[in-house]
Simulated assay, not measured.
Amino acid sequence: MARINYSDPSKASDRTREILDKNRNANIFRMMAHSPSYFEQYCRLGGAIRHKGELDPVVRELAITRTGILCEAPYEIVAHKRIGKNVGVTDAQNEALENWQAATCFNEVQRAALAFTDEIVKLNKPTDATFKAIASKLTPGALVELQLSVGFYIMTSKFLETFEIDLQPVAEVVG
């Protein structure tokens, strides 16, 4: 159960309701809508991360889901495993993310991105060796997008856990 009540969409501005509707009134957004201006900007950056960059969407979703795992944010993990499947992440990859280092289902770029993700979350920044490994495989733009994706979803995971956002029932997420 969430630590505070979710916002009431019927009391929100037209713009906030419009954004909530576009996002299926998901619990994370209903909580975030308590601050309409932050909510709108959060959604703009999240939309850019998910839809406007050059970073391979599979790499992005693997990194985002791994971030949720490391931040212990079940809502994030469930949501991005589903999103990942929609962009090409395999079931084997989703299942292996908990212990990706021992898995054989990730290619060289994906492994470098996952190592980069692990070190950003665990060490606050990647080691020189890890940075060089991923920088040799991505364009500067894609590298920036990968780092911003991980950072954005660290923030998102911490938001979810701070407010103890309830998982959506599957019918609401899929429907």
Rank of each mutant, 00 (worst) to 15 (best):
S7K: 01
S7F: 04
D8W: 14
P9C: 13
S10P: 12
S10I: 15
K11L: 04
K11F: 15
A12Y: 02
S13P: 15
D14E: 12
R15A: 05
T16K: 15
T16P: 09
R17S: 12
R17W: 11
I19W: 12
I19V: 09
I19M: 06
L20R: 06
K22N: 13
N23Q: 14
N25I: 08
I28W: 02
I28E: 02
M31Y: 12
H34D: 03
S35F: 05
S35Y: 08
S35G: 09
Y38Q: 06
F39I: 15
Q41T: 12
Y42E: 07
Y42Q: 11
R44E: 10
L45K: 11
G46S: 11
G46Y: 01
G47E: 10
A48M: 12
A48Y: 03
R50E: 04
R50S: 08
E54K: 13
L55P: 04
D56W: 08
D56T: 14
V59S: 01
V59C: 15
V59K: 02
R60N: 11
E61C: 04
A63V: 09
I64G: 00
I64F: 05
T65C: 06
C71E: 13
A73G: 05
A73D: 00
P74N: 05
P74S: 15
Y75R: 00
I77Y: 00
V78F: 06
V78M: 06
A79W: 02
K81L: 07
K81S: 10
K81D: 02
K81E: 04
R82K: 11
I83Y: 15
G84C: 01
G84W: 01
V87A: 02
V87I: 03
G88E: 08
V89A: 13
D91M: 12
Q93E: 08
Q93S: 14
N94G: 01
E95A: 15
N99L: 11
W100K: 06
A102P: 01
A102T: 10
A102R: 01
A102L: 03
A103V: 14
A103N: 11
C105T: 07
F106Q: 04
F106L: 05
N107S: 07
Q110P: 07
Q110Y: 15
A112V: 15
A112Y: 10
L114A: 08
F116T: 03
F116K: 13
F116I: 05
F116Q: 09
T117N: 15
D118R: 07
I120R: 01
N124H: 13
